[in-house]
């Protein structure tokens, strides 16, 4: 089963055209990468029905995105949670609970305890890291099957980032769950992602297991060379050239520069 299926999703803006098809198998953590303006946010918003595409079909957890029952299975975090500034954790639960049939109050308060989130503090007084933890806690408290996250670790210090990754790892202990998250922090992808969807200029360049991506290319440098090559095109290179395994950052950079053979 696929957690996400996108078929011929097209959205045109002046000077930009998003045209993507991809699917993400359930049970995995999938990173969504590409430079700013490549179409990540438009794609994510389309997945949530927040943007109406010009054409295309989107299925989430086997249901069309327009199906209202999809929402109960989704945990969404965009940049930071959309809570009212003066809500406390108590207010957040009071507001969210009626929307989610599977809301687990015990689980919610356990998370508040564990992350040392003072339930009497107002949302605006939480640090960015705490806001993210609060947002993730709410997704976990309603037993979401798919987490859609936009830059979940952006702007956070390494300690909090690692804590967030730990929560996500714990979430993934259940193999019926999936995570799809956009990020620029490739170090986090190296640590947690099983799969990578790479978007460039409105098109999907790559959608496969992370290791397949890094193993199918080699970085070729020296002797006038500075490019990424498919590993089956490495024959016949001069001796003074070095070839090495690229990082995810290398792959994004060389693809965007067009230095790929």
């Amino acid at each position: 089963m696929n957690s996400i299926e996108v078929r011929n999703l097209v959205k045109k803006y002046s000077g930009f055209r998003l045209d993507v098809s991809f699917s993400v198998p359930a049970g995995f953590v999938c990173g969504f990468i590409g430079r700013n303006g490549a179409g990540k946010t438009t794609t994510l918003k389309s997945l949530l029905g927040m943007t109406v595409p010009d054409s295309g079909e989107i299925t989430i957890l086997g249901k069309p995105v327009s199906d209202e029952s999809v929402k109960a299975d989704l945990g969404v975090l965009f940049d930071q949670p959309y809570y009212q500034e003066d809500w406390t954790a108590y207010d957040i639960e009071r507001v969210l609970k009626p929307y989610y049939e599977r809301w687990d109050s015990e689980c919610w308060s356990e998370f508040l305890d564990r992350f040392k989130l003072n339930p009497r503090l107002k949302f605006k007084d939480y640090s960015r890291g705490m806001k993210m933890k609060l947002g993730i806690s709410s997704a976990l408290a309603h037993d979401a099957k798919l987490l859609l996250l936009d830059e979940p670790t952006g702007g956070l210090d390494p300690v909090v980032r690692e804590e967030i990754l730990d929560i996500l790892r714990e979430y993934m202990l259940d193999e019926t769950r999936s995570i799809f998250f956009s990020t620029h922090i490739t170090a986090d992808l190296e640590k947690i992602a099983d799969r990578i969807v790479f978007i460039s200029d409105g098109k999907i360049v790559f959608n496969d297991y992370k290791d397949t991506l890094t193993e199918s290319f080699a970085l070729v440098r020296g002797g006038g060379y500075d490019e990424l090559r498919s590993v089956n095109k490495l024959g016949g290179l001069p001796k003074n050239v070095i070839t090495e395994k690229p990082s995810l950052d290398d792959i994004v950079v060389y693809f965007e520069r067009g230095n790929v053979k």
Partner: peptide
Amino acid sequence: PSVRGLARELKVSNITTIR
């Protein structure tokens, strides 16, 4: 150990232990 439990403990992606 379960693949997912081990992945979490070792802080590697699930696909690593599955492989």
